[in-house]
Write a protein that binds this DNA or RNA. Structure first.
Length: 111
DNA sequence: ATCTTGACAGACG
DNA sequence: TCGTCTGCCAAGA
């Protein structure tokens, strides 16, 4: 199990990279999985550093409502919605539809 | 060393 | 249901 004391950033990366295509998770779940359930903001902070990595699937992380709050941090060319849509995740008006159907919980999936 | 900022979440009125 | 406040913890100024 990951330890948050050292590099939260790395941990977040590892978890996000494990999100299967066509699924997504939330900031809170990642934070909880990393042992910092009240530090969802740190996840956003970590993802912020990955936004320069084009291939990083940061679009698979949304807030707990399934809302694409971070879409503004994506390039205008490749919007978050579009990326999710490309993975058959239905998004409407910056919100993921059938949330429960596509959610991927690291706590459950990774143990 | 202190203050502000943040891609959040839960609690309250 | 909705708007606002608070807790959280790591960076950058």
């Amino acid at each position: 199990m990951p330890n948050t004391n050292d590099n939260f950033f790395k941990m977040v990366c590892q978890v996000v990279e494990k999100i299967p295509k066509g699924r997504f998770t939330t900031y809170g779940m990642i934070a909880t999985y990393l042992g910092a359930p009240r530090s969802a903001r740190m996840v956003g902070w970590a993802l912020n550093k990955t936004k320069h990595i084009d291939s990083f699937p940061a679009h698979r992380v949304v807030n707990k409502q399934g809302l694409l709050t971070g879409h503004n941090h994506f390039g205008q060319n490749n919007p978050m919605e579009e990326r999710l849509m490309a993975e058959d995740i239905p998004v409407k008006n910056l919100k993921i539809q059938n949330f429960e159907k596509y959610i991927w919980d690291p706590l459950v999936e990774l143990g």
